Simulated scan of single mutants.
Amino acid sequence: MTNPDSADHVSVHLTGCGRETADAVIAALDAAFPTSPGTVIAERSGGRGTAPGKPVVWCTVVDTRARRPRTDPAPVPLDAPVTVDLFGAAQPVRQVQEELAGAFGVEDHGTVPGEHELEVRLVLTPVTGA
């Protein structure tokens, strides 16, 4: 598991999507948690480089202390499902999960509790009829 900077930070890892989709998910998180850096880091498994076909992980850290209610209740469009892994203390992870559920269709694919943190895997899905 990844160790966020503080108990209020949640590490968010997106897989199975391109940069535009990752940007849409991170923009939705930035709207809900405006102090988040919005930084996206692309990591490629299997070493360095940009070889085609290598999985990409888009990462950001969300600071949940500045959570604000979503002003746009409309779902954010996605062109394909996206796997999201959240790592952090239980309550902040739940807050990020709630905000993602307000912006996207969400399927819960499991939770792994730790001594001081929680790992949650979600799949964000396109919302039909949006």
Results as ranks from 00 to 15, higher is better:
Leu122Phe: 03
Thr71Arg: 10
Ala32Gly: 12
Gly46Leu: 13
Arg68His: 15
Leu29Asn: 01
Gly16Trp: 02
Asp85Pro: 00
Asp5Leu: 11
Glu115Asn: 12
Asp85Ala: 13
Phe33Glu: 02
Thr125Arg: 06
Val62Lys: 00
Val25Ile: 10
Ala90Ile: 10
Val84Asn: 00
Cys17Trp: 00
Glu119Asn: 11
Pro73Asn: 09
Asp72Pro: 01
Arg67Pro: 00
Arg94Gly: 07
Lys54Tyr: 08
Leu118Tyr: 07
Gly16His: 08
Thr35Ile: 04
Thr2Trp: 09
Leu78Cys: 11
Ala130Cys: 08
Glu115His: 14
Asp72Phe: 05
Arg94Tyr: 06
Phe87Lys: 01
Val96Gln: 00
Thr15His: 04
Pro92Asn: 02
Glu99Pro: 03
Ala103Gln: 06
Pro34Asn: 10
Asp85Glu: 15
Arg68Cys: 11
Val25Lys: 00
Pro77Asn: 09
Asn3Pro: 12
Val12Met: 06
Val123Phe: 03
Ala130Ser: 15
Thr111Trp: 05
Ala89Met: 12
His109Leu: 14
Ala24Leu: 14
Arg65Tyr: 04
Val61Gln: 07
Glu119Arg: 13
Val10Ile: 08
Ala31Gln: 07
Thr64Pro: 06
Thr71Cys: 10
Gly46Ile: 12
Val93Pro: 01
Thr83Tyr: 05
Gln95Asp: 14
Phe33Trp: 06
Val120Ala: 01
Ala24Trp: 05
Leu29Val: 14
Val82Cys: 03
Arg19Asn: 15
Ile41Phe: 13
Thr15Trp: 09
Thr2Pro: 09
Leu29Tyr: 04
Val82Asn: 02
Val25Phe: 02
Arg70Met: 15
Val96Arg: 00
Phe33Cys: 05
Gly102Tyr: 04
Thr50Leu: 15
Pro126Val: 04
Arg68Thr: 13
Ala31Val: 07
Val76Asp: 02
Gln97Tyr: 08
Ala28Phe: 03
Pro52Arg: 05
Asp72Cys: 05
Thr39Glu: 15
Glu99Cys: 08
Thr125Pro: 03
Ala27Asp: 13
Ser45Trp: 12
Ala28Ser: 14
Thr111Phe: 05
Val84Pro: 02
Ser36Val: 02
Pro126Asp: 06
Met1Trp: 15
Asn3Gly: 10
Leu100Ala: 07
Ala24Met: 14
Pro92Cys: 04
Gly105Val: 05
Asp63Trp: 08
Ala74Asn: 12
His9Pro: 03
Glu43Asn: 12
Val40Lys: 13
Leu124Tyr: 05
Ile26Gly: 00
Ala28Val: 07
Ile41Ser: 13
Lys54Asp: 15
Val12Ser: 01
Trp58Cys: 05
Gly16Lys: 07
Ala24Ile: 10
Gly105Pro: 03
His9Leu: 03
Val10Trp: 00
His116Ser: 06
Val106Leu: 11
Ser36Gln: 05
Gly114Cys: 08
Ser11Val: 07
Asn3Phe: 14
Val62Tyr: 01
Thr50Cys: 13
Arg68Phe: 10
Val127Asp: 04
Arg94Lys: 14
Val106Gly: 02
Ile26Met: 08
Thr21Met: 09
Asp108Trp: 09
Pro126Ser: 04
Thr64Gly: 11
His9Val: 04
Glu107Val: 13
Asp72Lys: 03
Val62Gly: 01
Pro92Arg: 00
Asp23Thr: 14
Val56Trp: 03
Ser45Phe: 12
Arg65Met: 13
Ala101Ser: 14
Pro81Ala: 08
Gly53Ser: 06
Asp79Gln: 05
Phe104Met: 04
Arg44Met: 11
